[in-house]
Computed example of a mutant assay.
Amino acid sequence: MKAVQFTSYGEPEVLQLREVADPVPTPHDVLIEVKATTVNHLDLFQRAGSRPVGQLPFTPGLEAAGVVIEDSNGFRAGEHVLTTRATKDTGSGGYASKLAVPAAHLARIPAGVSFAEAVAAGLAASTAWGSLFDLGHLKAGERALIWAGSSGVGSIAIQLAKQAGAWVATTASSEERAATLKKIGADLVINPRTQNVEEALQAVGGAHLVIELVGTSLQTSLSAATVDGRIILIGNLGGKEATIDTQAWRLKRLQVIGGGQLQTSIANEEKYLQLIAKKNVIPLIARILPIEQAAEAHRLLESGEPQGKLILTYAE
């Protein structure tokens, strides 16, 4: 089979498409032919060496969508499936053309959802669901602030929160991005470079739930939250250090909950795939590139956050 790997750390050029041995399934695995995967920030960190991997050569890729090759463990040959746990699969990550995936890690992709749409949602939607509902316990009628609305997690979280009946504010750094986020359901889009996020949220009563994806904006999230609000700390796109006022945190009785690389259950992953099939949720896709252009996809992500996911595909 083929796989994009790196044998040493470095710039995107270290990514090479290579011939490698097929994975050998365990008795609990399902063998799938990969059709699409995505590029995530962790892939960049691993390739550059800032998040060293256990062993080289290494195949990146946190998620993959594909076709079941042969009947196994309750899955039928030809079924379309998604894994958001590709780094735990036998042999390699999602940049490989075949994966041996534990059956317990597979979600079924419903009719009407493409492989690109499935992975564009993928781990981002799993994280969004986990932060909004598993940890954040978002309820209808509550107000949510979702940072970095143009990110993969942010754009899906906006739509899932709206599906749950919440009022949603988000952040974007340009009018073009703001227009897209309003189109997918955001009630309020704030440009944190030119507007005061805290004032904008407090003007409507404060956020009951904040999905914090930037990290350095944690103090603003504390200030923007209502009394007894919840803040789910998922990402640190802006950096891993923040200075906060513990007095404000204490007096408002705020909960700050670390989420990290959060994933919801397979059952919930199948729920959001059904929402995509019904067109109630639309994953944002920036570009779809052939797997041979993995290095170019890494360069694009490094050049500035695209609005939507970068998808890598294997030829049909």
Rank of each mutant, 00 (worst) to 15 (best):
V168S: 05
R287P: 06
Q293I: 00
S155H: 11
G304L: 06
T194L: 03
G205S: 09
D29G: 05
A121G: 02
R47M: 09
S174F: 02
Y314Q: 03
W249C: 03
I211D: 01
A125M: 06
A107Q: 06
I158A: 10
I156L: 14
E19T: 08
Q55E: 14
L201R: 00
R230K: 15
K139W: 01
N268R: 14
G215H: 10
L233C: 02
A161P: 04
I282A: 12
S303R: 14
Q163P: 01
V153T: 01
D187L: 06
A200D: 03
V189F: 07
L233E: 07
L132Y: 02
P110V: 02
Q263V: 12
L289Y: 13
A116V: 04
K271H: 15
P52M: 10
P192A: 02
L44R: 04
S223N: 13
Q307F: 10
N268H: 15
A242Y: 14
Q46R: 06
T26K: 12
G61P: 00
A21F: 04
N73A: 10
S126Y: 03
W147C: 07
T313G: 08
G54S: 09
E117C: 00
E33Q: 13
L62S: 05
G54N: 12
R18T: 10
G136E: 05
R76Q: 15
R177H: 09
R299S: 11
N40A: 05
S97T: 03
L145A: 03
G308D: 12
L106V: 02
G260H: 14
G91L: 05
A107W: 00
Q255E: 13
T313I: 14
A248P: 00
L209I: 04
H137A: 12
G54P: 05
Y272M: 13
L275Y: 12
A48R: 14
A224L: 08
Q255G: 11
T264L: 11
G239S: 06
Q159K: 11
E33S: 13
H41L: 07
G308R: 07
E270T: 00
K182P: 05
G304N: 06
Q255R: 15
W167K: 08
Q247A: 14
A225W: 02
V210R: 01
Q5V: 14
Q55G: 00
A36D: 04
H28S: 12
T170I: 10
E117V: 01
H298N: 10
L99I: 10
A267L: 13
G165C: 07
E198T: 04
Q202V: 01
G235D: 09
A140F: 06
A107G: 09
K88S: 10
G54H: 09
R18Q: 15
T243L: 14
H28I: 06
Y95F: 15
H137N: 14
G61S: 06
G49I: 08
V20G: 02
A164P: 05
L106Y: 00
L284Q: 15
A157S: 09
L123F: 04
Q46E: 13
A140T: 14
